[in-house]
Design a protein around this nucleic acid. Structure first.
Lengths: 141, 141
DNA sequence: TGAACTAATTAGATTATATCTAATGTGAAA
DNA sequence: TTTCACATTAGATATAATCTAATTAGTTCA
């Protein structure tokens, strides 16, 4: 993924391509491992320019609002972030909280009767269990 | 739901029926509105006996561990709790964060090939959008 | 160009949420 | 009873995220 492509992606969503915002977006695209805000903060600050914590959070929320990034809430843990590429679902590990991508399935839509006056934006499928690292240790919990 | 039924439910899961634990479980069963820990804390303390914050969290995590209660993480907000009754999915409001129940649909299971060594425990479907209260105000955001 | 405006960034304070600690209380079983 | 594991407590602490007020950078357009 080259610099201009990221720049165009940001600007296509009405976001200025600042060095800090670029760094956040590029990191998310290059590391599809669903990092936390703290991990992104550390990672982008290993390079220049330095970003403050507030900037990381500001930019993440701009990117989420623009629909370029997804925020994944995990019970009892910091939120994870995920550049939206191909459609996919998530697997969340009960033990370590890590989030992994799962292939996409079409999801059953609720009957419009059961939606009432609600406005549906999206459906998301979450698989839960033990990830590859944690499964072998299952017994030792 | 009478006292003995809750008592039996707790003890059937290996949990002592203490007044505080009973109060948390009874509140969740009587108020299927997915309250936060803070809301549960306030509500059960309107009655006797008083519970400390730590007790609320301890009991919630005992109940979750026992499989009697579900914790629902919501991005940017406090977790919600939900006594597991009939199987159902959730609708989470983008605007106010409230969680509502949706009817149950069978969910597509991943092919075992795509699971690898992961151990699947459950699949959960989350619908997102605007709830009945927030939908009319959509434009005014 | 450069004045004026708007968006973005910053360090650090603050808030919100949840967990931990160490002391105390409680109930069941021997 | 005595004992022991479980449960509860107040308050301290930890963690995650947001806010504040000042500053900097980028854009617009006269």
């Amino acid at each position: 993924m080259d610099v201009d492509a990221i720049k165009r992606t940001l600007e296509g969503s009405g976001l200025r391509c600042t060095p800090q915002r670029y760094a956040v977006m590029a990191f998310l695209m290059e590391h599809p491992k669903h990092p936390t805000a703290a991990e992104i903060f550390q990672a982008v600050n290993r390079l220049d320019p330095r970003s403050s914590r507030a900037t990381i959070y500001n930019n993440l929320s701009d990117l989420v609002r623009a629909g370029l990034v997804r925020e994944v809430a995990v019970e009892g843990r910091a939120a994870r972030f995920d550049a939206k590429g191909m459609r996919h679902h998530h697997f969340i590990c009960d033990r370590c909280g890590n989030v992994e991508d799962m292939e996409w399935y079409d999801v059953p839509k609720p009957a419009s009767g059961s939606l009432g006056k609600r406005v549906l934006r999206e459906c998301e499928l979450i698989f839960r269990g033990l990830c590859t690292k944690c499964a072998p240790r299952h017994a030792s919990r």
